[in-house]
Amino acid sequence: MSDPSTASIVSTPRPEEPRELAASPGAGLPEGARKEKPRGLLGDAWRDLRRKPLFWISAAFILLFVVMAAFPSLFSSGDAVNGDLSRSLGKPSADAWFGYDVQGRDVYARTIYGARASIVVALLSVLGTMLIGGAMGMIAGYRGGWVDSLLSRIADVFFGLPFVLGAIVILTTFNGSGSSNSKAEIMFLVIMSLTVLSWPVVMRLMRSSVLATREADYIVAARALGAGTGRIVLKHLLPNCLAPLLVYGTIMVGSFIGAEATLSFLGVGLKSPVVSWGIMISEAQNYIRVAPFLLFFPAAFLVAAVLSFVMLGEAVREALDPKLR
């Protein structure tokens, strides 16, 4: 026979643990004491950006310009290419908010449609610059040795070329006064010239980021576990080296909008019948005294677009840099 005391001890059920506490470690704690889910670099940056009025103002303007470039017919139903000479240099009125140019074309319609060429050229130039410069910077920083030296010397050659002078030489050679290039070819030449002269800066930024990151503990651990070069670059190096490139790329969009306008103003960039803000400013320079509105409106849109991208880049830089928080 078994001992009654032992039987009672064995048969006594143990108290069950509350299921809610076992299911959720934060249950039972005050609401403010529960631990928040850890965020990454982009999560922290987005949290800081949401609190900045400068970010929302610049983002709203950029969204407006992007929609204007993609769907100009939503903002104007006028003809941006053809005009009527009887309306030459007509002043702003209810029929034409920004007036008419010397050829009787609606300045408001041309200003709206001019956003497309300027923004498309800037975005594609930034994309090409980021791809070429980022790839070369990644290779130079990760491989090191003679590969780094060779790519750095090539970048120094392009970096030593004056930007405006180099663009003038390239565009004058391939897009001179006697050339018969189409609209697409002219835009491609402008994009190519901006990309060729700008990638060394991106290459240097990416190279410095890779050099500062490639000996980190998680990179060494991934290499020790047998991860290949492609996995290390795509899964570890690239996500942790993109922050400075995102900041510079955002600011560079505004810079390229101004660069395209400068080249078009000098007569070596985009040309008619393409409609852009730079072409409009170039055509208005001879009529500043009699019709200043021809210069004011496209210049105002150009300045607003450039400032919007620059302000967005500054907001992103402050959000991604822990020292500035």
Results as ranks from 00 to 15, higher is better:
199 W>R: 15
81 V>K: 12
28 G>K: 11
294 L>M: 15
305 A>V: 08
303 V>E: 14
1 M>V: 13
99 G>M: 13
317 R>S: 12
152 S>W: 00
203 M>A: 15
173 T>H: 01
234 L>K: 06
241 C>H: 01
92 P>Y: 09
164 V>L: 08
100 Y>E: 15
232 I>D: 01
277 W>S: 12
26 G>W: 09
185 E>F: 10
71 F>Q: 05
315 A>V: 10
54 L>S: 15
119 I>E: 05
84 D>H: 09
72 P>I: 09
192 M>A: 15
65 F>K: 04
248 Y>V: 05
171 L>A: 02
187 M>V: 07
92 P>K: 09
190 V>T: 07
4 P>E: 13
256 F>N: 08
210 V>A: 04
73 S>R: 02
38 P>N: 04
278 G>P: 10
130 M>G: 03
155 A>Q: 03
182 S>V: 11
41 L>R: 12
312 L>I: 10
252 M>H: 09
250 T>M: 09
172 T>L: 04
163 F>N: 04
163 F>G: 08
28 G>N: 11
60 A>N: 06
223 R>E: 00
51 R>N: 10
67 V>D: 01
322 P>D: 11
67 V>G: 05
28 G>R: 11
28 G>Y: 10
160 G>E: 10
239 P>K: 11
43 G>Y: 10
247 V>S: 01
153 R>A: 10
43 G>A: 12
101 D>P: 12
129 T>G: 06
16 E>V: 08
177 S>L: 06
127 L>H: 06
